[in-house]
């Protein structure tokens, strides 16, 4: 319960930010942090709590994004409905990928690579069919208004992503305190042992991937509505898959607050290196990469690992050593 109170307090504090931040640019950074935290939390459900490393979260992100865009542009369907459709379709894609891989017992790096391949297949398909606009991409008409799930100001988008992200964090809090979460942790730590205890590993993993797909899809819906343009590379390209896993791993896998810490840390590092280094192409990104390496060298358990050192209560769920 205490963790829930902390969670609600943190999100309440975040909700006040639009009132105190007068800079649209700064508010945009906060929005992009929440968006990264959402993507990261989506990955964390499956990767951190479930121990299934996905390299293909772009599959869910892209499906959510394309669903809301295509329904609006090709069929004139309101994006609020598109949002629901996007979430459902992303869950369906997740269920399909989960079924195909968990049924055949793929784990570890095999699972990682197969998810990557599924995302690539979707990228190629979206590049080849008419209704996505193929390589030309798809442009959502600019029509600000809450009815169109577009907002005049960044504050509107802030509350959209804030609610998506809060929902994801609440879901993960629930996972941490439910039978489902306990089964998921058991499967992650030792699948055979979990089975012996009567856990239906397949069902548990399916639950995790579908929930993960839901929030990945919502991140895609948000992206589409915020930036209004998609092409196959933006929607299903590897960049999204990488960001999804980077955020929670840096923050602390299998912890409730890890994705938030990771999102804030990564964006801060990225902003600061660019501010400090200036406009020589390449150098600021190189330093960003070096800082990533440094973080891994010195913070082997992510940022949440430091917190855990002090508080003991916020014990990272995924601390069992998995040998390299």
């Amino acid at each position: 319960m205490r963790q829930l109170l902390v969670l609600l307090a943190v999100f309440s504090a975040i909700a006040v930010l639009p009132a105190v931040i007068t800079s649209e640019f700064s508010l945009n950074i906060v929005i992009m942090m929440l968006y990264a935290a959402l993507l990261g939390q989506a990955w964390n459900i499956l990767g951190g709590y479930g121990g299934q490393f996905s390299f293909g979260h772009a599959a869910y992100f892209g499906t959510g994004a394309y669903a809301v865009a295509v329904l609006q542009v090709q069929l004139g369907i309101n994006p609020w409905i598109g949002m629901v459709a996007g979430a459902l379709l992303a869950m369906a894609v997740a269920a399909f990928i989960g079924f195909a891989t968990f049924r055949t017992g793929l784990r570890g790096s095999y699972f990682a690579l197969v998810t990557l391949a599924f995302a690539e297949v979707l990228r190629i398909l979206s590049n080849s069919v008419d209704f996505t606009g193929a390589g030309v991409g798809i442009l959502i008409p600019l029509a600000p208004g809450p009815g169109n799930l577009q907002f005049e100001t960044k504050t509107g988008f802030f509350f959209l992503i804030w609610s998506f992200t809060l929902a994801a964090f609440l879901a993960v809090w629930w996972i941490g305190h439910s039978r489902f979460g306990a089964s998921l942790a058991a499967v992650r730590d030792n699948e055979e042992a979990a089975r012996a205890l009567g856990v239906n590993a397949f069902r548990v993993k399916m639950g995790a991937i579908i929930l993960s797909g839901l929030f990945g899809g919502l991140a895609g819906v948000f992206y589409a509505q915020y930036f209004l343009y998609l092409d196959p590379y933006i929607a299903y390209g590897p960049a999204i898959s990488v960001e999804s896993l980077l955020v929670p791993i840096i923050g602390g896998m299998g912890t409730l607050f890890g994705p938030l810490l990771g999102a804030v840390a990564l964006h801060t590092v990225s902003e600061l290196t660019r501010e400090l280094i200036g406009d020589v192409p390449g150098i600021s990104l190189a330093i960003y990469g070096a800082l990533l390496v440094g973080m891994v060298l010195f913070l082997p358990r992510g940022l949440a690992g430091i917190a855990a050192r002090f508080t003991r209560r916020n014990k990272p769920a995924g601390t069992e050593t998995r040998h390299a």
């Binding site: 490393f53 791993i249 390449g282 990469g289 990533l292 390496v293």
Partner: peptide, 28 residues
């Protein structure tokens, strides 16, 4: 090797970080 601390995800991150460094140094 030093960064792995026995965890797969660390190796993944460190090789990812290295690739960002190498690519951007090459660009420079």
């Amino acid at each position: 090797g030093k960064a792995s601390h026995g965890r797969d995800e660390n190796i993944l991150l460190v090789t990812l970080g290295l690739s960002i460094v190498i690519e951007n140094l090459a660009l420079y």
